[in-house]
């Protein structure tokens, strides 16, 4: 009995300030103070270097209303290209990732070795080097243009990460599910298709969203081989206008809006998955 008060003592002695610090209004104040500080520093810095802010010139890169009517600007066009590129690469990465995961989970010694070799090779190469390999080495050999070199490079890079997500999701399904599937006569393929994969998808969805967000962000790297997409467009506008501050802030914000929207969408989707059960 004497142990009881002692066990609970820390709660009574809890630092009262902690509760104050955790309150929502105070968090907001802190947040605003930090953001305000960063903005102030940026403004002061730009002022001291005599930066000439020209935000009014930004909207024309989103849309223009000319004699022909409404026209999309360069940034939305770049964004569509980025999303197209990322989606295509992601679709390929899903297929390749599943293949690698299944190879790795199989009892085939060769398959396993191939999968592990692929994983280690891709995971231990910087993305930029991988891109150069695809564009300057594999490109001429397989006559890939810069667009397909980029798509394949991104697909291969993310397939390695996605295959680990698949593997973890598949391994998280209890062994009894395999045994039940086999005991009703299913082949390994049927068990995967009807029993294992449907159950692991729910577990894979959050990390896969993370990978899609990651993909959209890492697609910016293809600007180094001048594939037309959001970051390349940003660089082009800057080389015309020298508005590097405004344009990079804008481009970053556009990426953020897209990736945040994606996260919200998937968390909705996830909820509808759980309600079904």
């Amino acid at each position: 009995m004497s142990d009881f008060p002692e066990t609970f003592a820390p709660r009574a002695r809890q630092w009262p300030l902690r509760r104050v610090l955790r309150s929502a209004p105070l968090s907001l104040v802190f947040y605003l103070a930090i953001v305000g500080g960063i903005v102030w520093l940026a403004l002061r810095g730009s002022a001291s270097m005599g930066y000439n802010w020209q935000w009014y010139r930004i909207p024309q890169y989103f849309y223009e209303i000319t004699d022909q009517g409404f026209q999309w600007g360069e940034i939305p066009i770049g964004l569509v290209a980025t999303i197209g590129l990322s989606t295509l690469a992601f679709a390929l990465a899903l297929v390749l990732g599943l293949l690698v995961a299944l190879l790795r989970l199989s009892d085939l010694v060769v398959g396993n070795a191939v999968a592990v070799g692929f994983l280690e090779l891709v995971r231990n190469t910087p993305l930029l080097v991988l891109l150069y390999l695809f564009y300057y080495v594999l490109g001429p050999i397989f006559s890939l243009d810069r667009y397909w070199a980029s798509v394949l490079c991104l697909a291969v890079f993310h397939a390695a990460l996605i295959s680990e997500i698949f593997r973890a999701g598949i391994l998280a399904v209890p062994k009894g599910q395999w045994e039940a599937a086999k005991s009703i006569g299913m082949t390994t393929g049927q068990a995967y298709r009807w029993i294992i994969i449907p159950q692991s998808i729910r577990m894979m969805l959050p990390p896969l969203t993370g990978e899609m967000v990651h993909m959209i962000k890492s697609s910016a790297i293809v600007s180094v081989i001048a594939v037309a997409e959001l970051t390349t467009i940003g660089r082009n506008i800057i080389s015309d206008t020298y508005m590097s501050f405004e344009i990079w802030f804008t481009i970053a914000a556009v990426y953020m809006v897209v990736t945040l929207a994606l996260s919200v969408l998937v968390s909705r989707l996830e909820r509808s998955f759980t309600v079904k059960r």
Binding site: G176, Q177, A180
Partner: peptide
């Protein structure tokens, strides 16, 4: 053989989805 021999498990192992 599995199509001739059914099995009932201790932990049921029903398909939850």
């Amino acid at each position: 053989i599995r199509q001739e021999v059914g099995m009932v498990f201790q932990q049921f192992n029903l398909f939850p989805h």
